[in-house]
């Protein structure tokens, strides 16, 4: 009986791992196939071919799209963290009226259906002449990265011991000194985790990137992959699509596996964002 239970448990674990990993494995396998082999549903490529990767990276603007994604996500993370640190300090350490209301508002903005701001954002972006530029994306992505960053950093600051700050106040340090000299050095791990999570969300964003850019050269990777098409309307270049998909996903998967523990703690602290 006990043996049976153990066997069932391991079978369950095996099923979980298989279901989680197989689709990505199959994408990698497909990306390494070429020609007619693509259309045979085999679990192993007969001939390893990097042709799909060569196509994606040399024909068309995919490299440019990668650079765009890097610029946008990097800028969004940097700005969010910069603004987020001081806000998090104020929210976690200073008691003032309206504080919990403000926290609730920040949470609501991060769970806000982004479509509800789409029309108004479009108006602003056109008025600022930012349409079809990376700046339009950097600006609009603040709507989800900033509240998320502030929320997670606030829970982190909250958990830092109060004594450190009290000592600094007794020494006559002002709030700016406290944040930049005392909290900042302690917060590197939190900043790394939050930054990584915000980076992943920005990297994956689709709705704004689709709406606020119109040419291939300005697109980010998710939009480029979604719109990747073949020579004719009916010929979908599955090999290229899978190669592009694997190219943008492998760095993410590696990062996530390296920072596993931190990410899990960041996710549960934030509770936000699928």
């Amino acid at each position: 009986m006990r043996m049976l239970k153990r066997a069932a448990f391991y079978l369950l674990l095996l099923a979980i791992v298989f279901l989680a990993v197989f689709p990505f494995y199959y994408a990698i396998v497909t990306s390494l196939k070429s020609g007619t082999e693509l259309f045979q549903a085999s679990l192993w490529p007969q001939s390893f071919s990097l042709a799909n990767y060569r196509n994606v990276l040399t024909e068309g603007p995919f490299l440019r799209n990668l650079v765009n994604s890097l610029i946008v996500s990097g800028a969004v993370v940097a700005i969010s963290l910069l603004i987020g640190i001081t806000a998090a300090y104020a929210l976690a350490r200073i008691r003032f009226r309206g504080r919990s209301g403000l926290m609730l508002a920040i949470l609501s903005v991060s769970m806000f259906p982004q479509v509800a701001a789409l029309a108004g954002l479009f108006e602003i972006i056109r008025a600022l002449h930012l349409y079809n530029s990376l700046l339009a994306l950097i600006l609009s992505y603040m709507i989800f990265t900033l509240p998320f960053t502030v929320w997670v950093l606030t829970t982190f600051v909250h958990d830092l011991p109060v004594e450190i700050e009290e000592a600094a106040i007794l020494d006559g340090a002002g709030p700016w000194i406290i944040v930049s000299r005392i909290f900042l050095p302690l917060m590197w791990p939190a900043l790394a985790t939050t930054g990584l999570l915000a980076f992943i969300t920005a990297w994956n964003e689709f709705l704004f990137a689709l709406t606020f850019t119109s040419t291939n050269m300005q697109r980010t990777v998710p939009v480029a992959i979604a719109l990747l098409s073949g020579n004719s309307q009916f010929e979908i270049p599955w090999g290229n699509i899978m190669a592009a998909s694997v190219t943008v996903t492998v760095p993410l998967v590696v990062l996530v596996l390296i920072f596993q523990r931190r990410i899990v703690s960041g996710l549960t602290a934030g509770g936000v964002n699928g």
């Binding site: 994408a27 992959i225 979604a226 996903t249």
Partner: peptide, 18 residues
């Protein structure tokens, strides 16, 4: 635990295409 993080890490567009 690492294995189940993989679907989460994959961009939505990529998982849709896969």
């Amino acid at each position: 635990r690492a294995a189940i993080l993989i679907p989460w890490a994959i961009p939505t567009i990529v998982s849709a295409k896969m």
